[in-house]
């Protein structure tokens, strides 16, 4: 079943639960991002409509890395690479307070819920099936597996990789911006 694509506009009615891609949270936190207005409007509309906003530990991990790379570049003027980190893991320690702060702010949003893997094997099997049938990176397969394992009906992202999905027997609405 092809996913339903909805181009977000302020006032759109959402389905009864959505999963947030990391970019939504990052862009809403950062007022210099090109999608700041749209991302904050999406989150505001979700709160107003009392729609649960699901995130997973994968999402939090991606938010962490996006901010760590941006802060590191901002502070040093150079790109954070895995080799630099492996050579000196303490280079990220200076950002721990900021990371804690950002994480707490995400978890403090009134409608945020953690997508669970109550049956972890299910999540892995769903991800495996998606990887077999769709052209997605493994990480994106696991995002969708969390969505399906938790019966979440919507997915919010600025990523176009999810536009051509065809999920058997699962009606998913992708809100893109």
């Amino acid at each position: 079943m092809p996913v339903t694509i909805v181009n977000f506009n302020h006032g759109n009615l959402f389905v009864n639960s959505v999963y947030a891609d990391a970019n939504l949270l990052c862009y809403a936190r950062n007022r210099l991002s090109p999608y700041y207005k749209t991302a904050t409007t999406i989150i505001g509309d979700l709160i107003v409509q009392k729609v649960p906003l699901f995130v997973s530990h994968l999402v939090i991990d991606e938010v962490w890395w996006a901010f760590l790379r941006a802060w590191y570049r901002y502070r040093t003027g150079t790109v954070l690479t895995s080799q630099k980190y492996k050579n000196n893991p303490s280079i990220l320690g200076r950002f721990s307070k900021l990371l804690e702060r950002n994480t707490n702010k995400i978890l403090s949003l009134p409608n945020v819920k953690m997508a669970s893997a109550a049956q972890p094997l299910d999540v892995v099997q769903i991800a495996r099936d998606i990887f077999t049938s769709e052209s997605l990176m493994p990480r994106d397969c696991f995002h969708l597996a969390f969505v399906m394992a938790n019966n979440i009906e919507g997915f919010v992202t600025s990523d176009r990789d999810f536009d051509n999905l065809n999920l058997p027997n699962y009606p998913l609405t992708v809100y893109r911006y």
């Binding site: 990391a22 970019n23 007022r31 790379r69 949003l109 990480r139």
Partner: peptide
């Protein structure tokens, strides 16, 4: 909570910042 969340940061994100598989 909404006001406490939005727009605190002022950093430039690059598209590669969202890549989970980095070189």
């Amino acid at each position: 909570a909404y006001l406490n969340f939005i727009g605190e940061e002022t950093v430039d994100f690059h598209p590669s910042d969202f890549e989970v598989y980095y070189p």
